[in-house]
Design a binder for these strands. Structure first.
Lengths: 178, 178
DNA sequence: CCATATAACTTAACATGTTAAGCAGATTTG
DNA sequence: CAAATCTGCTTAACATGTTAAGTTATATGG
């Protein structure tokens, strides 16, 4: 099902209406946000089936994966590392705890802070999934080229950096009433 | 970030703490999916406040934006262009129609197909938002560099292409029971 | 100390992502 | 042409994204 039918092909335009809006669809489709979205989706499409077969979502995998690299970690720090917003992380940790894939306690020195670690069961799951994921990643690297992949990531990091600089500058836009 | 406190209890890590799981956090954080996710998030962070001030989400904006480039479009084709899954699009179209930003009807030749177009009200909204978005995009282009931006998008497209080729090849992985 | 402001989550509410079903209209077959 | 099948959405159900409030615990100021 690679190809669909032709988009519209001026499907019977009886009135001969001189249309104004017609041209720049390509431009839209090539915008940076769309390019990034499609690229990421293309990548994740490779991993999702495998993760799903183990009952894990992408985000749950990110969290568990991050937890394997540390002994324990505070919730806020985990949010930054796994790149999740607080509320999402909060829900996911609740579920992962219910599934006994992680363990939680509170920091002694500051009862507000939660400290998380992966459980033996979680570690076992990760070890079962990891080979698949690594194989897929290796295949992507091979297909695209290790060098090119490195360049791409450098460029993405630089883009991040450029945008971080923008944040500090003026946000003199917003809407009409804000 | 760069400097958080050390993860676990040995906050004063004077040297030779032979921890087990410690090393590959960097690797995780540098994975391709994470790089793409962070880059895209950094980009969208620039646009969201402006869109939000006009009561639009990113996806709603994508749809309206796409609709400005055509006279009418079928739902399935719109889904491909705006890169949304059917169910998401279905919900969003329902809401946009309720807000009278779009208009719908069914194709005469095939009553299954829905045909969508932007309404005058929707067009007006787009015209109000567009200058902001274009200014932001121009600023991004300026900061990052037009040439580099072009290269980045070429590389992203090539990545997509490489991965599309993978789809056709073997998916001889999946989980244990699939 | 106590009132207030902060911090670190957690909940709530709404919108979208994702997969699986459901449904009506269209196409294919016998 | 009627049953089976396929298409093009739409709903349902569950998970996450996103912003705003709420809660409890610390830190601060007086």
């Amino acid at each position: 099902m690679a190809d669909k039918k032709p988009p519209n092909g001026s499907r019977s335009d009886p009135g001969g209406a001189p249309e104004l809006r017609r041209a720049p669809m390509r431009e839209f489709s090539r915008s940076l946000p769309m390019s990034l979205l499609r690229a990421r989706e293309a990548v994740m499409r490779q991993f999702r089936p495998s993760l799903r077969s183990y009952g894990l979502t992408e985000q749950q995998w990110r969290i568990l994966r991050a937890l394997t690299t540390v002994d324990t970690i505070e919730v806020t720090e985990l949010a930054r590392v796994a790149f999740l917003l607080g509320p999402s992380l909060s829900r996911i940790l609740r579920d992962l705890e219910a599934r006994e894939l992680i363990e939680r306690r509170t920091a002694e020195a500051d009862l507000r802070r939660g400290v998380v670690s992966i459980s033996p069961k979680g570690l076992k799951l990760i070890e079962a999934v990891a080979p698949n994921s690594e194989a897929i990643y290796a295949e992507i690297t091979h297909r695209y080229g290790a060098r090119k992949l490195g360049e791409l990531q450098d460029m993405l990091a630089e883009l991040e950096h450029s945008l971080a600089a923008m944040e500090l500058a003026g946000e003199g836009d917003a809407g009409p009433d804000e």
